[in-house]
Structures are given as C-alpha cells and as structure tokens.
Write a protein that binds this DNA or RNA. Structure first.
Length: 507
RNA sequence: CGGGAUGUAGCGCAGUCCGGUUAGCGCGUUCGGUUCGGGACCGAAAGGUCGGAAGUUCAAAUCUUCUCAUCCCGACCA
C-alpha cells in the first residue's frame, strides 16, 4: 500500500515556501513554464481566474467613465528616449526588435535580415506610445478628461522569473488618463487606488494597505506612486497594483497640450495605473493551504462542483437524474450579478481522486452525491475553507436556498483569516536592535518564515532607507494613507520622523 | 547578471564520486480481476537515444569542455 501523504501538496508551506507555491500552481493546473525563457503558459484554470479579474475590473472602469482602446505592441526607440527617468528605469529590461524578416542562412537555418531604420522596443509599459496619440487627441479643455484603459501584454526582460509573480511577458491592464488640472489628476489617481483596493478586498478577499511609495520605489518618471500592499503567508509583502500621478512630466515629454478656457496653451496632467496577472500569484499565496489552491468564491471559475458517486448502471441513472436536476436549479441561481457556475464531474475516475483534484483546484463547494442522497433528498457538502474531512449532510432544497449565503460565508472567512494573519504579523517597532532581530532569521542557512510588517518611524532620507535595505533586504513598502501620522524618531538614525511607515521584505 | 544546486519514462526519484551485461524504483497510464460513500488491493503490460553539442576511451547516464533550461540566494523589478 502506498504511503499516503498527510497533505496534498509537498513540500508544505512550513518546509519550503517557494517550493510549495510552485506545487500549488502545478497541482491546480493553472500555468506552466513554456519553451521561451521566463515566459509562462497560462492554462485554462489559471486563465479563467484572469478572465474573472478582467470582467469585474472592466465593469468598474466603465462605471467610472473609462473606455478601452488598444495601442501598438512596439514602441519606436526615440519615443522611449523622451522621458529621462523613464528610460533609466526600464532600459535594462527591454526586448528590442531590430529586423523585419528572416532569410536562409545557407546552413539550413534562418538569420535575421532587413535591419530596421529605427529599432522598436516591445512595450514594457505604454506611457510613451499612448502619449503620442494623446498629443493628437487633446487640443482643447473640452477634450478633457481623457479616460482610457488598455488590456494588453507587456514584456520586461526580468532576470529571475516565477510563475505569475514575475514573468518576462505578462498580462495586465494599464489605464492612462489626461486631465486639465493637477487636482483632478490627483483625484483620479486616488479614485483608481480605492477602486483597486475595494476589488482586492471584496473580490479577492485580500486585505490590503494603501499607501504612497518612497522616491526610490517610485515608478520611473512618476511624480508620485501609490500602491496597495498585501501580506503573503510567508509574511512578505506583495505590491498588488499601482496608481501613478505623473504630474506634467509625460505631458511635456509627449507634448500633450491643450487650450484652456482663457485660450492659453497649457501642458496637461496625466495618470497611469495598472494591475497584472501577478494578482493571481497574490491570490494563491494569501489563501492557499497545504492541500492546494483555495479560491475566494467571487473570483472562482467554478463555485460548485458535483461529484456523482455510483457503482453500477442502475445507480448511475438514479444518481445522474438527481444530479442533473440539482445542477440546473443551481445554475439558475444568481451569485453577485452572475449565474452560479456549477460543474458535474463526469470523468471516469475514482471518487476519491476526483474529490482531491477539486480540492487542489480550490473550488469553494464540493457536493458528493450518491444513492443515499437521492433517497434522502440530501447533498453531502465539503467546503474548501474547511478541512477535507469536515463534511456536512444537508437537505437538498435547503442547500439550494442557502448556496449564495454559504459562498458569501466562505468569502468572508477567507478575508477574515487573511486579515487576522496580517494583524498577528504586523507590529510597531521603535528600537533599532529589535528591528534588526525581527528581520533576521534564526537559521541563516535555510531561513524559516520570519518577520512581517514592521510599523516604524523613518526620517525620510534615502540614506537610512538604503542602509536598511542593504543590511536586511527590508524595504519601505509604503507610507500608509489611512493612519493619523504619529511623530517619533527614525528607527535607523534617530532623527525626527513625521510618521510610521511599513517596512517589510517583499516580492 | 553574480553565487549555489539540479536536469534519467507523464510526475517524483535512485544510479554519477570509483566508466563495464538488456538503465532501475514509486506514483500515474493501459488491460484483467477483487473492492468501493471514496485519495484501494492483486496480477500483467506499455512507456527512456539518461537536457543538448563536442571530446577522452575498446566502452560514457557516469570523466572533460562548451551550451541550454529550471530552482534557490543576491542584485533588478509588477
């Protein structure tokens, strides 16, 4: 008899967190490495999650007056050169297209030919190419605000990649807006930040902290960058999305000008903001356990999976009739303005394997239906927010009536669990030695999960920030927006500090 | 891009130090049977040019060089 592991995923989070992460992705069949270095293949189960993220956010963007458009994948090098900080920030990770065709190389292979007169950059972000269009579209104050979003892929030639968290090519959404005044652009920046945070908390069940980035962590070329940060189960921070106030920098670089009401020409004020497939990584690392993925119902591709239990043809007919009826009733149920997604698993597999398959995929509700349920008009229910053994017998009609409430409860449980975890691992630290102890693992060879978010004072100077980063690999994740600033002394140099900031190790 | 590790069947691994018959094991797969409200058991079978290239040798998974990929740590970053 084969030795059965206690958990479906090995290694466990405790044993090897990065290893666990990879196995969860694999076990849930979400994505895999491709033949192209650093690029992933997003498989149907992973892509379905992305489609849900897209659908929900797209609706929110449109509700707030934004419209979608599409801009080229390629950016002429000269466009890129217009904004100095922007160039510096992205130059090291750009893929460059230099030729327009391939020719026979005489050895049975192909070689690039037809060198381009101007080389093209594969977009790492689209501020410059979109800015060129905006310069043509914006002439008068009547053309503003201009609120555009694009769903696209971008390429950043990262040296170290990890599925969903950092890949050379990734999918994202980038909003680009133009405004007549500084205030209006700032308001837009904050409005989107709130929209993102609301989405993260309500749909992804991911508690986040909104804040502003320090100068060193800012988007290259932005005047200010706002972000929302979430805590993963290894207590590291993950920047889940950003919203940038670009001031007039990109407007000046791209010549986005308009005539105001007085007929005078002014540079416009722009913003940009984005979230990416990285959110899926955040989702995985925030909720999943040693049995695999756990999906919050609001974002799950499937809400309910039904596993029929049958031994022979006679039972099969009996069970399938019951299951078909149950399934169609459930499919008529609305869950957050969308039809409940229900699947009957008709694969010819052993029941136990099937159940574990869905546990690893993170489906919120599993129903195991056999002859006994048919006779009792009941369902046998397993919830992904509980242990695999913890199952309940429910009356079928009561279940149908309560399914939305159960899903909402699962959603709330996941959010609360993540929030409790963050609270337990977020501490105020005012002593330098304690700060260093907090972020130093006991086992240097094979570091255990340690640290968390430290709320500490910072004088505001780049030197202290850099020294802490150098010593501990700990960075300032953000200057939180929602706290009442409390004065104190810098954790590193002891100088006056205006506020506590969040220090953490990060992805 | 620096340091470390790994690459052998669909997956997980042993074998490599010390070169030597037909390259093994577990899971999975296929077939047969027994079980079965459950990640089962028994039996049989299929499946590998040992990441790639070049070299050393009578002989290479094993030694040498180069190369590619993946993972971990670091730097960089969403």
């Amino acid at each position: 008899m084969a030795q059965q592991a206690k958990t479906a995923i090995l290694p466990t989070r405790e044993e090897n967190y990065p290893g666990w992460y990879q196995q969860v992705v694999k076990a849930a069949d979400m994505a895999e490495n491709s033949d192209v270095r650093g690029c992933m293949v997003i498989k149907p189960w992973g892509y379905a999650i992305w489609e849900n993220i897209q659908r929900i956010l797209d609706d929110k963007f449109k509700e707030t007056g934004h419209v979608n458009a599409y801009f080229p994948l390629f950016i002429p090098k000269s466009f890129f050169e217009k904004e100095a900080e922007h160039v510096e920030g992205f130059a090291k990770e750009c893929a460059v297209v230099t030729h327009s065709r391939l020719e026979d190389d005489g050895n049975g292979g192909l070689k690039p030919a037809g060198p381009l007169s101007e080389e093209l950059i594969v977009r790492p972000t689209s501020e410059t190419i979109i800015g060129a269009s905006f310069a043509r579209w914006v002439n008068s104050y009547r053309d503003l605000p201009l609120l555009i979003n694009q769903w696209a892929n971008v390429v950043r030639w990262e040296l170290r990649t990890r599925l969903f968290l950092r890949t050379a090519e990734f999918l994202w959404q980038e909003g680009h807006t133009v405004h007549a005044t500084r205030d209006e652009a700032l308001q837009e920046t904050m409005k989107i930040l709130d929209l993102y945070a609301d989405f993260a908390e309500n749909c992804l069940a991911l508690p986040v902290i909104k804040g502003e980035k320090t100068a060193s962590e800012r988007f290259p070329g932005a005047e200010s960058t706002f972000c929302f940060e979430a805590m993963m189960q290894d207590k590291k921070a993950l920047q889940a999305g950003t919203s940038h106030f670009l001031g007039q920098k990109f407007a000046k670089a791209s010549e986005i000008k308009f005539q105001n009401k007085e007929g005078k020409e002014e540079y416009a004020w722009t913003t940009s903001w984005g979230i990416s497939t990285r959110l899926i990584g955040a989702l995985i690392m925030a909720h999943s356990d040693d049995d695999g993925l756990i999906l919050p119902p609001r974002i799950a591709p499937l809400h309910v999976v039904i596993v029929p239990i049958q031994r022979n043809e006679e039972e099969k007919t009996l069970v399938m009739d019951y299951v078909t009826d149950l399934c169609s009733k459930l499919r008529n149920t609305m869950y957050h303005e969308r039809k409940l997604q229900v699947k009957v698993d008709e694969r010819e597999m052993r029941g136990g394997d099937m159940i574990w398959d869905w546990i690893k995929k993170g489906v919120p509700i599993r129903l195991e239906i056999g002859p006994r349920d048919v006779n009792n008009n009941s369902v046998f229910l397993g919830r992904r927010d509980k242990t695999p053994k913890e199952k309940a017998n429910l009356n079928k009609d009561a279940f149908i009536e309560n399914v939305v409430a159960i899903l909402d409860e699962i959603q709330e449980n996941l959010y609360q669990k993540a929030l409790d975890f963050r609270r337990e691992n977020m501490v105020s630290i005012d002593d330098k030695e304690e700060f260093y102890r907090y972020f130093t693992p006991k086992n240097a060879e094979n570091p255990e999960i340690h640290g968390g978010f430290a709320l500490s004072h910072w004088c505001g100077c780049a030197e202290c920030e850099a020294k802490i980063k150098e010593d501990l690999s700990v960075t300032i994740r953000c200057l939180p927006l929602d706290s009442n600033p409390e004065k104190g002394k810098c954790i590193f140099c002891g100088k006056e500090s205006e506020r506590r900031v969040i220090f953490a190790k990060s992805y």
